[in-house]
Computed example of a mutant assay.
Amino acid sequence: MSKFFGYILSPVFYIFFGLSLCIFHPIQWMCFKLFGYKAHKVSVDILNFFLTYCQIFLFNSINFKNEYDLPTDRPIIFAANHQSMYDIPSLIWFLRKHHAKFISKIELTKGIPSISINLRLGGGANINRKDNKQAISEIIKLGRRMKDNNWSTVIFPEGTRAKDGQLKTFQFGGIATLLKTAPNALIVPIAIENSWKIVRYGMFPLTTGHALKWTVLKPIEPTEKNANDITLEVESEIRKVLNQENETL
């Protein structure tokens, strides 16, 4: 039934999702050019509110759970599993006070309304996966911006989307590189559940009736821990949440 309703509701979802991207593209540009970073960020936050709650057109619910009082006066590295592109708008919206940045493929900086302009202007790292030197350089620059501005970065240590929802082995390179330039960054795991189900049949039809969940887990202080140990701990904590979810199905 979820797939059946997806044939009906996916076009409605795409219309509103696409309209949001198109409407906010010129708004972002004007905010940045006329008023600078702060105004641009507000426009991006509002855009991602609409992108997040476009899920109502698919009858998917949004549940972002955070029981921790996370600081805003130090950098944070949010490390999450990655299931679909729909993970990202909610992370931007619900983590907005932490100025969450992303490490993105450089190919995404062109041709996509709102998304490309945000990647170019928003302060994240746009990397060429075929050029390791360029990628490391961009991540180091991002780490410096984190340190200077008390920004946060969201990274997906799996390196790619888990299209079947099964957690892949985490890689420690991203956390290690960011900690070199922002050694006081707090590490915060986030477990993402069920967003892979939306795209289990690809771009069309999207499926309906899912409980989408983002759960902020206990922060990890990097003191006296190396990046490999931190990454293993992050993976372990996220895996516990995902396994609990599987046990209830």
Rank of each mutant, 00 (worst) to 15 (best):
M1Q: 14
M1T: 15
M1C: 09
L9E: 08
L9K: 12
G18V: 09
L19S: 11
P26R: 10
W29T: 11
C31D: 08
C31R: 04
F35Q: 15
G36S: 08
G36P: 12
Y37M: 09
I46S: 08
L47V: 13
N48A: 06
F50W: 10
L51F: 07
T52L: 03
F57K: 06
L58Q: 05
F59C: 11
N63C: 14
N63S: 15
F64E: 07
N66Q: 09
D69Y: 10
A79R: 01
H82Q: 06
S84Q: 00
S84F: 02
M85D: 14
D87V: 06
L95R: 04
H99F: 14
H99T: 13
S104H: 12
P113K: 13
A125D: 05
N126E: 06
I127M: 02
K130T: 06
A135F: 03
S137F: 05
E138G: 02
I139M: 06
L142I: 08
R144V: 15
R145W: 03
F156Q: 02
D164E: 09
K168S: 11
F170E: 07
F170V: 11
F172A: 15
L178V: 13
A182C: 12
P183F: 11
P183D: 07
N184R: 04
V188F: 05
V188Q: 04
I190N: 01
I190V: 08
A191K: 05
A191L: 06
N194K: 03
W196N: 13
R200Q: 14
Y201F: 15
Y201T: 06
F204P: 12
L206C: 04
T208R: 00
A211Q: 13
L212Y: 00
W214A: 02
L217I: 00
K218A: 02
P219M: 01
I220Q: 00
E221F: 00
D229Y: 03
L232M: 10
N243V: 00
N246K: 07
